[in-house]
């Protein structure tokens, strides 16, 4: 259990450090689920024994997991569902308005100073793709013009 939580937390930190807001969002989801597991393990785990009092009995018989943390988790899940749904809508709206999900390129609220040196934020992969597309496009153009000139 501890290892699971650790792995989830590590993965979420990796995702949170990304430029890509969608990844950040996934990181948050993973992190909040890791937190739920922490609470879950705090309540103790017993296999196959739901903490329900049998009919007619006054108390729980035998060893049971503490049900309260599970109620807490339920609340936490509901809340994080709401928050994350909102965050998703927010990211989506931002994408529509700003046309990017790269957090480094969002400098509207805190505009850089005139003399501030900002590294070129454009995603290098995307440049390659665009260059490639341009190259392919050129080739197509050449061929078309070649085809066009043939009958003449």
């Amino acid at each position: 259990m501890a290892f699971t939580v650790g792995a989830m937390a590590a993965g979420s930190v990796y995702l949170l450090l990304s430029h890509n807001l969608v990844r950040v969002l996934f990181g948050l989801i993973l992190l909040s689920n890791a937190a739920n597991f922490v609470i879950f393990s705090a309540g103790g785990m017993v296999e196959g024994a739901p903490p329900l009092i049998a009919k007619g009995a006054r108390d729980l018989a035998g060893v049971h997991a503490n049900p309260l943390p599970q109620a807490l988790i339920l609340t936490a899940i509901v809340i994080s569902f709401g928050l994350l749904a909102f965050a998703l809508v927010l990211v989506y709206r931002t994408y529509q308005e700003l046309g990017t999900i790269d957090s480094d390129r969002m400098r509207l609220a805190e505009p850089p100073y005139d003399d501030q040196d900002i590294p070129e934020p454009e995603n290098p992969h995307r440049i390659h793709v665009r260059d490639a597309a341009r190259r392919v496009g050129n080739r197509v153009d050449n061929r078309m013009s070649a085809n066009g000139s043939d009958p003449a």
Partner: peptide
């Protein structure tokens, strides 16, 4: 646009604090 930009940063950090 500025608001959305600000809100993203606000939301991300505050969600981490929540967790």
């Amino acid at each position: 646009k500025e608001q959305l930009d600000g809100a993203i940063k606000y939301a991300a950090i505050n969600l981490v604090s929540t967790v």
